[in-house]
Design a protein around this nucleic acid. Structure first.
Lengths: 254, 254
DNA sequence: CAACCTTAATGAGGATAATTCATCATTCTC
DNA sequence: GAGAATGATGAATTATCCTCATTAAGGTTG
Protein backbone atom coordinates (compact mmCIF):
# COMPACT_ATOMS: atom_id res chain seq x y z
CA UNK A 1 0.00 0.00 0.00
CA UNK A 2 1.68 3.21 -1.10
CA UNK A 3 1.37 6.42 0.87
CA UNK A 4 -1.16 8.17 -1.28
CA UNK A 5 0.75 10.53 -3.57
CA UNK A 6 4.48 10.21 -2.86
CA UNK A 7 6.00 6.92 -3.94
CA UNK A 8 8.19 4.67 -1.86
CA UNK A 9 11.48 6.24 -0.91
CA UNK A 10 14.39 5.16 -3.11
CA UNK A 11 16.38 2.26 -1.74
CA UNK A 12 20.13 2.64 -1.33
CA UNK A 13 21.89 -0.56 -0.55
CA UNK A 14 25.15 -0.46 1.36
CA UNK A 15 27.38 -3.17 2.73
CA UNK A 16 26.48 -4.40 6.14
CA UNK A 17 29.66 -2.90 7.60
CA UNK A 18 29.15 0.49 6.03
CA UNK A 19 25.55 0.73 7.12
CA UNK A 20 26.37 -0.27 10.65
CA UNK A 21 29.11 2.32 10.78
CA UNK A 22 26.74 5.01 9.53
CA UNK A 23 24.11 4.15 12.09
CA UNK A 24 26.62 4.01 14.91
CA UNK A 25 28.03 7.33 13.89
CA UNK A 26 24.59 8.91 13.84
CA UNK A 27 23.73 7.23 17.11
CA UNK A 28 26.86 8.54 18.77
CA UNK A 29 25.92 12.06 17.84
CA UNK A 30 22.33 11.79 18.96
CA UNK A 31 23.24 10.02 22.20
CA UNK A 32 25.81 12.68 22.86
CA UNK A 33 23.36 15.49 22.28
CA UNK A 34 20.36 14.06 24.05
CA UNK A 35 21.40 11.36 26.45
CA UNK A 36 20.00 7.86 26.41
CA UNK A 37 16.32 8.25 27.17
CA UNK A 38 15.84 11.40 25.15
CA UNK A 39 17.60 10.01 22.14
CA UNK A 40 14.94 8.61 19.84
CA UNK A 41 15.46 5.77 17.44
CA UNK A 42 13.61 7.90 14.93
CA UNK A 43 16.18 10.71 15.41
CA UNK A 44 19.01 8.30 14.86
CA UNK A 45 17.34 6.76 11.86
CA UNK A 46 16.75 10.12 10.26
CA UNK A 47 20.32 11.24 10.79
CA UNK A 48 21.67 7.95 9.48
CA UNK A 49 19.35 8.30 6.51
CA UNK A 50 17.56 5.04 7.06
CA UNK A 51 14.14 4.08 8.22
CA UNK A 52 13.53 3.19 11.87
CA UNK A 53 12.98 -0.46 11.16
CA UNK A 54 16.34 -0.76 9.44
CA UNK A 55 18.20 -0.09 12.65
CA UNK A 56 16.76 -3.28 14.09
CA UNK A 57 18.31 -5.28 11.31
CA UNK A 58 21.73 -4.40 12.73
CA UNK A 59 21.14 -3.91 16.43
CA UNK A 60 19.01 -5.96 18.74
CA UNK A 61 17.56 -2.99 20.53
CA UNK A 62 18.32 0.52 21.69
CA UNK A 63 20.60 -0.61 24.48
CA UNK A 64 22.58 -2.86 22.20
CA UNK A 65 23.11 0.13 19.95
CA UNK A 66 24.37 2.17 22.89
CA UNK A 67 26.74 -0.58 23.96
CA UNK A 68 28.20 -0.85 20.48
CA UNK A 69 28.58 2.92 20.23
CA UNK A 70 30.48 3.12 23.50
CA UNK A 71 32.60 0.11 22.60
CA UNK A 72 33.54 1.77 19.36
CA UNK A 73 34.43 5.01 21.10
CA UNK A 74 36.49 3.28 23.75
CA UNK A 75 38.40 1.23 21.26
CA UNK A 76 39.59 4.25 19.36
CA UNK A 77 40.50 6.06 22.52
CA UNK A 78 42.52 3.51 24.38
CA UNK A 79 44.67 2.47 21.50
CA UNK A 80 46.25 5.92 21.50
CA UNK A 81 46.97 6.01 25.19
CA UNK A 82 49.40 3.15 25.26
CA UNK A 83 51.44 4.84 22.61
CA UNK A 84 51.47 8.14 24.45
CA UNK A 85 52.29 6.51 27.74
CA UNK A 86 55.30 4.78 26.26
CA UNK A 87 56.89 8.18 25.69
CA UNK A 88 56.70 9.13 29.35
CA UNK A 89 59.22 8.10 31.97
CA UNK A 90 59.32 8.32 35.72
CA UNK A 91 56.79 6.74 38.00
CA UNK A 92 55.27 10.01 39.05
CA UNK A 93 54.97 11.30 35.51
CA UNK A 94 53.48 8.09 34.23
CA UNK A 95 50.93 8.02 37.00
CA UNK A 96 50.14 11.64 36.40
CA UNK A 97 49.62 10.97 32.72
CA UNK A 98 47.14 8.17 33.39
CA UNK A 99 45.12 10.32 35.74
CA UNK A 100 45.33 13.37 33.53
CA UNK A 101 44.32 11.38 30.46
CA UNK A 102 41.26 10.10 32.26
CA UNK A 103 40.27 13.55 33.48
CA UNK A 104 40.85 15.02 30.04
CA UNK A 105 38.57 12.42 28.49
CA UNK A 106 35.80 13.33 30.87
CA UNK A 107 36.41 16.98 30.12
CA UNK A 108 36.37 16.53 26.37
CA UNK A 109 33.39 14.25 26.06
CA UNK A 110 31.31 14.45 29.21
CA UNK A 111 28.18 13.22 27.48
CA UNK A 112 29.63 9.91 26.37
CA UNK A 113 31.35 9.44 29.71
CA UNK A 114 28.04 9.99 31.39
CA UNK A 115 26.46 7.32 29.21
CA UNK A 116 29.27 4.97 30.03
CA UNK A 117 29.02 5.55 33.77
CA UNK A 118 25.28 5.71 34.03
CA UNK A 119 24.03 3.22 31.51
CA UNK A 120 26.76 0.81 30.58
CA UNK A 121 28.56 0.13 33.79
CA UNK A 122 25.36 -0.33 35.70
CA UNK A 123 23.89 -3.04 33.51
CA UNK A 124 24.14 -6.57 34.76
CA UNK A 125 25.55 -7.61 31.43
CA UNK A 126 28.43 -5.18 31.79
CA UNK A 127 31.03 -7.78 32.64
CA UNK A 128 30.23 -9.59 29.42
CA UNK A 129 30.80 -6.38 27.49
CA UNK A 130 33.86 -5.55 25.44
CA UNK A 131 34.02 -2.24 27.28
CA UNK A 132 34.57 -4.14 30.48
CA UNK A 133 37.62 -5.81 29.03
CA UNK A 134 38.94 -2.60 27.58
CA UNK A 135 38.49 -0.91 30.90
CA UNK A 136 40.34 -3.62 32.70
CA UNK A 137 43.17 -3.37 30.24
CA UNK A 138 43.16 0.39 30.72
CA UNK A 139 43.21 0.47 34.49
CA UNK A 140 45.78 -2.30 34.56
CA UNK A 141 48.26 0.20 33.15
CA UNK A 142 47.81 2.27 36.25
CA UNK A 143 48.31 -0.69 38.51
CA UNK A 144 51.42 -1.66 36.57
CA UNK A 145 52.89 1.75 37.19
CA UNK A 146 52.27 1.43 40.90
CA UNK A 147 53.73 -2.05 40.84
CA UNK A 148 56.84 -0.73 39.13
CA UNK A 149 57.10 1.93 41.80
CA UNK A 150 57.03 -0.76 44.43
CA UNK A 151 59.56 -2.87 42.60
CA UNK A 152 61.96 0.06 42.25
CA UNK A 153 61.64 0.77 45.95
CA UNK A 154 59.92 4.11 45.46
CA UNK A 155 56.65 2.97 46.97
CA UNK A 156 55.78 0.98 50.02
CA UNK A 157 54.79 -2.59 49.33
CA UNK A 158 52.00 -3.00 51.83
CA UNK A 159 49.26 -1.22 49.92
CA UNK A 160 46.41 -3.26 48.45
CA UNK A 161 46.77 -2.47 44.76
CA UNK A 162 43.11 -2.82 43.89
CA UNK A 163 42.13 -0.28 46.48
CA UNK A 164 44.72 2.15 45.19
CA UNK A 165 43.16 1.82 41.77
CA UNK A 166 39.65 2.24 43.13
CA UNK A 167 40.83 5.28 44.99
CA UNK A 168 42.31 6.91 41.92
CA UNK A 169 39.45 6.27 39.55
CA UNK A 170 36.81 6.76 42.18
CA UNK A 171 38.32 10.07 43.12
CA UNK A 172 38.37 11.23 39.53
CA UNK A 173 34.76 10.29 39.11
CA UNK A 174 33.55 11.93 42.26
CA UNK A 175 35.50 15.03 41.46
CA UNK A 176 33.85 15.27 38.06
CA UNK A 177 30.23 14.44 38.85
CA UNK A 178 29.10 18.03 39.06
CA UNK A 179 30.74 18.74 35.72
CA UNK A 180 29.02 15.74 34.20
CA UNK A 181 25.73 17.14 35.38
CA UNK A 182 26.56 20.35 33.59
CA UNK A 183 27.44 22.35 36.69
CA UNK A 184 30.70 24.23 36.78
CA UNK A 185 33.99 23.22 35.28
CA UNK A 186 37.37 21.78 36.26
CA UNK A 187 40.90 21.91 34.98
CA UNK A 188 42.22 18.45 34.10
CA UNK A 189 45.87 19.37 34.53
CA UNK A 190 45.43 21.05 37.86
CA UNK A 191 43.17 18.30 39.15
CA UNK A 192 45.52 15.58 37.96
CA UNK A 193 48.40 17.20 39.82
CA UNK A 194 46.42 17.45 43.01
CA UNK A 195 45.32 13.83 42.82
CA UNK A 196 48.81 12.57 42.09
CA UNK A 197 50.15 14.47 45.05
CA UNK A 198 47.49 13.02 47.28
CA UNK A 199 47.99 9.47 46.06
CA UNK A 200 51.76 9.66 46.20
CA UNK A 201 51.62 10.94 49.75
CA UNK A 202 49.95 7.67 50.65
CA UNK A 203 52.20 5.49 48.55
CA UNK A 204 55.44 6.99 49.75
CA UNK A 205 57.53 4.73 51.91
CA UNK A 206 56.79 5.00 55.60
CA UNK A 207 60.23 6.47 56.13
CA UNK A 208 58.85 9.56 54.48
CA UNK A 209 55.17 9.20 55.07
CA UNK A 210 54.90 8.71 58.78
CA UNK A 211 54.93 5.38 60.47
CA UNK A 212 53.26 5.51 63.84
CA UNK A 213 55.06 2.44 65.12
CA UNK A 214 58.42 4.10 64.60
CA UNK A 215 57.31 7.20 66.35
CA UNK A 216 55.95 5.27 69.26
CA UNK A 217 59.15 3.30 69.48
CA UNK A 218 61.15 6.49 69.48
CA UNK A 219 58.97 7.96 72.16
CA UNK A 220 59.27 4.76 74.16
CA UNK A 221 63.03 4.91 74.04
CA UNK A 222 63.06 8.51 75.07
CA UNK A 223 60.74 7.83 77.93
CA UNK A 224 62.72 4.83 79.06
CA UNK A 225 65.85 6.93 79.02
CA UNK A 226 64.17 9.58 81.07
CA UNK A 227 62.88 7.00 83.49
CA UNK A 228 66.37 5.69 83.97
CA UNK A 229 67.55 9.18 84.66
CA UNK A 230 64.76 9.64 87.10
CA UNK A 231 65.59 6.38 88.81
CA UNK A 232 69.18 7.51 88.95
CA UNK A 233 68.25 10.68 90.73
CA UNK A 234 65.86 8.91 93.06
CA UNK A 235 62.74 10.67 91.73
CA UNK A 236 59.78 8.25 91.44
CA UNK A 237 58.63 7.82 87.80
CA UNK A 238 55.17 9.40 87.39
CA UNK A 239 52.52 7.77 85.21
CA UNK A 240 54.00 9.75 82.34
CA UNK A 241 51.87 12.65 81.16
CA UNK A 242 53.77 12.92 77.89
CA UNK A 243 52.39 9.66 76.52
CA UNK A 244 48.95 10.97 75.90
CA UNK A 245 50.24 13.51 73.47
CA UNK A 246 52.03 10.84 71.51
CA UNK A 247 49.34 8.23 71.24
CA UNK A 248 45.93 9.80 71.80
CA UNK A 249 43.85 6.88 70.58
CA UNK A 250 46.45 4.24 71.08
CA UNK A 251 44.12 2.22 73.22
CA UNK A 252 41.36 1.95 70.69
CA UNK A 253 43.61 1.39 67.73
CA UNK A 254 43.53 -2.40 67.79
CA UNK B 1 -19.97 4.59 31.72
CA UNK B 2 -19.87 1.35 33.74
CA UNK B 3 -17.57 -1.50 32.86
CA UNK B 4 -20.18 -3.88 31.53
CA UNK B 5 -21.03 -6.22 34.39
CA UNK B 6 -18.86 -5.35 37.40
CA UNK B 7 -19.64 -1.99 38.96
CA UNK B 8 -17.16 0.72 39.74
CA UNK B 9 -14.65 -0.24 42.42
CA UNK B 10 -15.51 1.07 45.88
CA UNK B 11 -13.89 4.33 46.78
CA UNK B 12 -11.84 4.53 49.98
CA UNK B 13 -10.90 8.01 50.93
CA UNK B 14 -7.76 8.62 52.96
CA UNK B 15 -6.03 11.77 54.06
CA UNK B 16 -3.56 13.20 51.62
CA UNK B 17 -0.66 12.36 53.94
CA UNK B 18 -1.72 8.79 54.50
CA UNK B 19 -2.27 8.11 50.83
CA UNK B 20 1.07 9.61 49.88
CA UNK B 21 2.80 7.50 52.51
CA UNK B 22 1.09 4.36 51.21
CA UNK B 23 2.09 5.07 47.64
CA UNK B 24 5.67 5.86 48.57
CA UNK B 25 5.91 2.71 50.59
CA UNK B 26 4.65 0.63 47.70
CA UNK B 27 6.91 2.48 45.32
CA UNK B 28 9.96 1.84 47.46
CA UNK B 29 9.28 -1.87 47.37
CA UNK B 30 8.69 -2.04 43.67
CA UNK B 31 11.66 0.17 42.84
CA UNK B 32 13.81 -1.98 45.06
CA UNK B 33 12.65 -5.18 43.43
CA UNK B 34 12.68 -4.07 39.83
CA UNK B 35 14.83 -0.99 39.41
CA UNK B 36 13.63 2.22 37.86
CA UNK B 37 12.74 1.36 34.28
CA UNK B 38 11.25 -2.02 35.06
CA UNK B 39 9.12 -0.68 37.87
CA UNK B 40 5.73 0.06 36.38
CA UNK B 41 3.38 2.69 37.67
CA UNK B 42 0.70 0.06 37.33
CA UNK B 43 2.67 -2.27 39.65
CA UNK B 44 3.03 0.46 42.20
CA UNK B 45 -0.61 1.42 41.94
CA UNK B 46 -1.73 -2.13 42.42
CA UNK B 47 0.47 -2.64 45.46
CA UNK B 48 -0.67 0.66 46.97
CA UNK B 49 -4.23 -0.36 46.27
CA UNK B 50 -5.08 2.61 44.14
CA UNK B 51 -5.66 3.17 40.48
CA UNK B 52 -2.82 4.36 38.21
CA UNK B 53 -4.27 7.78 37.73
CA UNK B 54 -4.41 8.40 41.47
CA UNK B 55 -0.64 8.35 41.72
CA UNK B 56 -0.46 11.41 39.51
CA UNK B 57 -2.59 13.35 41.95
CA UNK B 58 0.27 13.13 44.45
CA UNK B 59 3.39 12.93 42.31
CA UNK B 60 4.20 14.88 39.19
CA UNK B 61 5.62 11.92 37.36
CA UNK B 62 7.52 8.71 37.83
CA UNK B 63 10.82 10.45 38.48
CA UNK B 64 9.29 12.73 41.07
CA UNK B 65 8.02 9.65 42.83
CA UNK B 66 11.50 8.14 42.80
CA UNK B 67 13.02 11.32 44.16
CA UNK B 68 10.56 11.46 47.00
CA UNK B 69 11.11 7.79 47.81
CA UNK B 70 14.87 8.23 48.02
CA UNK B 71 14.54 11.44 50.01
CA UNK B 72 12.36 9.62 52.49
CA UNK B 73 14.82 6.76 52.78
CA UNK B 74 17.80 9.07 53.21
CA UNK B 75 16.12 11.14 55.83
CA UNK B 76 15.48 8.20 58.09
CA UNK B 77 18.97 6.87 57.59
CA UNK B 78 21.14 9.90 58.22
CA UNK B 79 19.38 11.02 61.36
CA UNK B 80 20.70 7.91 63.12
CA UNK B 81 24.27 8.32 62.01
CA UNK B 82 24.97 11.54 63.83
CA UNK B 83 23.87 9.97 67.05
CA UNK B 84 26.00 6.89 66.54
CA UNK B 85 29.01 8.97 65.55
CA UNK B 86 28.77 11.03 68.69
CA UNK B 87 29.54 7.93 70.72
CA UNK B 88 32.84 7.32 68.97
CA UNK B 89 36.10 8.99 69.86
CA UNK B 90 39.49 9.15 68.22
CA UNK B 91 40.11 10.47 64.75
CA UNK B 92 40.85 7.12 63.27
CA UNK B 93 37.83 5.47 64.78
CA UNK B 94 35.51 8.24 63.75
CA UNK B 95 36.80 8.15 60.21
CA UNK B 96 36.48 4.40 60.18
CA UNK B 97 32.91 4.63 61.36
CA UNK B 98 31.94 7.04 58.59
CA UNK B 99 33.43 4.80 55.92
CA UNK B 100 32.08 1.64 57.45
CA UNK B 101 28.61 3.13 57.80
CA UNK B 102 28.59 4.04 54.14
CA UNK B 103 29.80 0.62 53.05
CA UNK B 104 27.28 -1.07 55.31
CA UNK B 105 24.45 0.94 53.77
CA UNK B 106 25.46 -0.18 50.30
CA UNK B 107 25.68 -3.72 51.56
CA UNK B 108 22.27 -3.65 53.21
CA UNK B 109 20.27 -1.96 50.51
CA UNK B 110 22.14 -2.18 47.23
CA UNK B 111 19.04 -1.65 45.13
CA UNK B 112 18.15 1.72 46.61
CA UNK B 113 21.79 2.80 46.53
CA UNK B 114 21.89 1.87 42.90
CA UNK B 115 18.84 4.03 42.24
CA UNK B 116 20.43 6.89 44.12
CA UNK B 117 23.72 6.65 42.23
CA UNK B 118 22.33 5.91 38.83
CA UNK B 119 19.14 7.90 38.64
CA UNK B 120 19.12 10.62 41.26
CA UNK B 121 22.65 11.89 41.29
CA UNK B 122 22.86 12.02 37.53
CA UNK B 123 19.83 14.23 37.00
CA UNK B 124 20.46 17.86 36.28
CA UNK B 125 17.97 18.77 38.98
CA UNK B 126 19.97 16.87 41.58
CA UNK B 127 21.45 19.93 43.23
CA UNK B 128 17.96 21.27 43.83
CA UNK B 129 17.03 18.02 45.54
CA UNK B 130 16.73 17.48 49.28
CA UNK B 131 18.95 14.44 48.90
CA UNK B 132 21.70 16.71 47.69
CA UNK B 133 21.52 18.72 50.89
CA UNK B 134 21.37 15.63 53.05
CA UNK B 135 24.35 14.22 51.26
CA UNK B 136 26.34 17.38 51.78
CA UNK B 137 25.51 17.35 55.44
CA UNK B 138 26.54 13.73 55.59
CA UNK B 139 29.90 14.03 53.88
CA UNK B 140 30.66 17.19 55.80
CA UNK B 141 30.98 15.04 58.90
CA UNK B 142 33.83 13.22 57.24
CA UNK B 143 35.55 16.44 56.35
CA UNK B 144 35.10 17.71 59.87
CA UNK B 145 36.84 14.67 61.22
CA UNK B 146 39.78 15.22 58.91
CA UNK B 147 39.81 18.87 59.86
CA UNK B 148 39.94 17.93 63.51
CA UNK B 149 42.82 15.62 62.76
CA UNK B 150 44.67 18.51 61.18
CA UNK B 151 43.86 20.83 64.05
CA UNK B 152 45.12 18.36 66.60
CA UNK B 153 48.34 17.95 64.68
CA UNK B 154 47.71 14.33 63.75
CA UNK B 155 47.36 15.03 60.06
CA UNK B 156 49.31 17.13 57.66
CA UNK B 157 47.66 20.41 56.79
CA UNK B 158 48.54 20.60 53.12
CA UNK B 159 45.90 18.22 51.78
CA UNK B 160 42.99 19.59 49.78
CA UNK B 161 40.05 18.50 51.91
CA UNK B 162 37.59 18.16 49.07
CA UNK B 163 39.82 15.76 47.26
CA UNK B 164 40.26 13.68 50.38
CA UNK B 165 36.51 13.42 50.58
CA UNK B 166 36.21 12.54 46.89
CA UNK B 167 38.86 9.94 47.37
CA UNK B 168 37.09 8.29 50.27
CA UNK B 169 33.61 8.22 48.79
CA UNK B 170 34.83 7.57 45.29
CA UNK B 171 36.86 4.66 46.51
CA UNK B 172 33.91 3.18 48.35
CA UNK B 173 31.77 3.47 45.28
CA UNK B 174 34.27 1.96 42.91
CA UNK B 175 34.93 -0.83 45.31
CA UNK B 176 31.24 -1.68 45.46
CA UNK B 177 30.19 -1.37 41.83
CA UNK B 178 30.45 -5.05 41.10
CA UNK B 179 28.35 -5.83 44.15
CA UNK B 180 25.75 -3.31 43.05
CA UNK B 181 25.56 -5.11 39.73
CA UNK B 182 24.87 -8.29 41.62
CA UNK B 183 28.33 -9.80 41.16
CA UNK B 184 30.15 -11.12 44.18
CA UNK B 185 30.14 -9.72 47.67
CA UNK B 186 32.27 -7.67 50.03
CA UNK B 187 32.76 -7.35 53.76
CA UNK B 188 31.99 -3.82 54.98
CA UNK B 189 34.17 -4.07 58.08
CA UNK B 190 37.17 -5.46 56.30
CA UNK B 191 36.86 -3.01 53.45
CA UNK B 192 36.44 -0.07 55.79
CA UNK B 193 39.61 -1.00 57.63
CA UNK B 194 41.58 -1.27 54.42
CA UNK B 195 40.34 2.09 53.18
CA UNK B 196 41.06 3.83 56.46
CA UNK B 197 44.58 2.46 56.46
CA UNK B 198 45.12 3.66 52.94
CA UNK B 199 43.71 7.12 53.58
CA UNK B 200 45.54 7.57 56.85
CA UNK B 201 48.80 6.62 55.20
CA UNK B 202 48.37 9.63 52.97
CA UNK B 203 47.19 11.97 55.71
CA UNK B 204 49.93 11.18 58.16
CA UNK B 205 52.37 14.00 58.78
CA UNK B 206 55.49 13.59 56.72
CA UNK B 207 57.47 16.05 58.83
CA UNK B 208 57.40 13.93 61.95
CA UNK B 209 58.84 10.86 60.37
CA UNK B 210 60.63 12.56 57.54
CA UNK B 211 63.84 12.43 59.48
CA UNK B 212 63.41 9.24 61.39
CA UNK B 213 67.08 8.58 60.89
CA UNK B 214 67.92 11.85 62.56
CA UNK B 215 65.58 11.15 65.39
CA UNK B 216 67.02 7.70 65.89
CA UNK B 217 70.42 9.25 66.04
CA UNK B 218 69.10 11.69 68.53
CA UNK B 219 67.67 8.92 70.63
CA UNK B 220 70.97 7.07 70.36
CA UNK B 221 72.81 10.10 71.64
CA UNK B 222 70.34 10.54 74.44
CA UNK B 223 70.69 6.93 75.43
CA UNK B 224 74.43 7.13 75.27
CA UNK B 225 74.32 10.18 77.49
CA UNK B 226 72.12 8.36 79.95
CA UNK B 227 74.46 5.38 79.86
CA UNK B 228 77.35 7.66 80.70
CA UNK B 229 75.34 9.03 83.58
CA UNK B 230 74.49 5.53 84.66
CA UNK B 231 78.11 4.43 84.43
CA UNK B 232 79.01 7.44 86.49
CA UNK B 233 76.70 6.35 89.23
CA UNK B 234 77.68 2.70 88.98
CA UNK B 235 74.27 1.41 87.84
CA UNK B 236 74.54 -1.26 85.09
CA UNK B 237 72.88 -0.22 81.77
CA UNK B 238 69.89 -2.51 80.97
CA UNK B 239 69.55 -4.02 77.48
CA UNK B 240 66.65 -1.81 76.37
CA UNK B 241 63.72 -3.76 74.88
CA UNK B 242 62.43 -0.84 72.83
CA UNK B 243 65.34 -0.78 70.43
CA UNK B 244 64.41 -3.75 68.33
CA UNK B 245 61.26 -2.08 67.06
CA UNK B 246 63.16 0.94 65.92
CA UNK B 247 66.12 -0.53 64.20
CA UNK B 248 64.98 -3.10 61.59
CA UNK B 249 64.10 -0.98 58.59
CA UNK B 250 66.15 2.02 59.51
CA UNK B 251 68.73 1.11 56.93
CA UNK B 252 66.43 1.12 53.95
CA UNK B 253 65.09 4.56 54.71
CA UNK B 254 67.11 6.38 52.03
C1' DC C 1 -31.60 16.91 57.24
C1' DA C 2 -31.08 18.37 52.71
C1' DA C 3 -28.47 21.23 49.79
C1' DC C 4 -23.84 22.49 49.13
C1' DC C 5 -18.90 22.54 49.04
C1' DT C 6 -14.44 20.70 49.21
C1' DT C 7 -11.45 17.30 48.12
C1' DA C 8 -10.23 12.23 47.14
C1' DA C 9 -10.43 8.85 43.61
C1' DT C 10 -11.62 6.74 39.35
C1' DG C 11 -10.85 4.82 34.65
C1' DA C 12 -11.16 5.55 29.88
C1' DG C 13 -8.46 7.44 26.45
C1' DG C 14 -4.44 10.10 24.37
C1' DA C 15 0.37 10.42 23.34
C1' DT C 16 4.78 8.73 22.55
C1' DA C 17 8.30 5.44 21.47
C1' DA C 18 10.34 1.01 20.98
C1' DT C 19 9.99 -3.04 18.34
C1' DT C 20 8.21 -6.61 14.81
C1' DC C 21 7.41 -8.45 10.36
C1' DA C 22 5.49 -9.24 5.87
C1' DT C 23 6.85 -7.33 1.72
C1' DC C 24 9.65 -5.27 -1.75
C1' DA C 25 14.18 -3.87 -4.11
C1' DT C 26 18.77 -4.33 -5.36
C1' DT C 27 22.88 -6.63 -6.39
C1' DC C 28 25.50 -10.73 -7.02
C1' DT C 29 26.18 -15.32 -9.22
C1' DC C 30 26.20 -18.58 -12.72
C1' DG D 1 18.96 -12.64 -17.50
C1' DA D 2 16.74 -16.03 -14.12
C1' DG D 3 17.27 -16.98 -9.50
C1' DA D 4 19.40 -16.61 -5.00
C1' DA D 5 20.94 -13.83 -1.35
C1' DT D 6 20.77 -10.02 1.14
C1' DG D 7 19.52 -5.05 2.13
C1' DA D 8 15.70 -1.95 3.14
C1' DT D 9 11.07 -0.44 3.85
C1' DG D 10 6.96 1.23 6.48
C1' DA D 11 2.79 0.01 8.41
C1' DA D 12 1.17 -2.29 12.35
C1' DT D 13 1.80 -3.73 17.17
C1' DT D 14 2.72 -3.15 21.84
C1' DA D 15 3.82 -1.18 26.05
C1' DT D 16 3.81 2.64 29.20
C1' DC D 17 3.45 7.02 30.99
C1' DC D 18 0.35 10.50 31.76
C1' DT D 19 -4.15 13.59 31.33
C1' DC D 20 -8.65 14.80 32.37
C1' DA D 21 -13.56 14.77 32.58
C1' DT D 22 -16.38 12.61 35.74
C1' DT D 23 -17.90 10.51 40.09
C1' DA D 24 -18.11 9.80 45.05
C1' DA D 25 -17.27 10.57 49.98
C1' DG D 26 -17.36 13.35 54.01
C1' DG D 27 -17.94 17.45 56.21
C1' DT D 28 -20.56 22.10 56.79
C1' DT D 29 -24.29 25.19 57.05
C1' DG D 30 -28.87 27.31 57.11
Amino acid sequence: MTTGTAGRRPVFRLSRERRMADIMSAAREVFREKGYEEALISDIAERADVVEGSIYRYFENKRDLLVKVIEDWYEGMLSDYDQQLSGISGTRNRLRFMIWRHLATVHEDPALCQLMFQHLRTGEDYSRTAVHDLNRKYTRRTLDIVREGIASGEFRADMPLRLVRDMIYGCVEHRTWAYLRGEGDFDPTETANAIVDLVLAGLQKPAVAANVADESALADRLEQAVERLERLSGVPAPRAAGREATAPDGGSAG
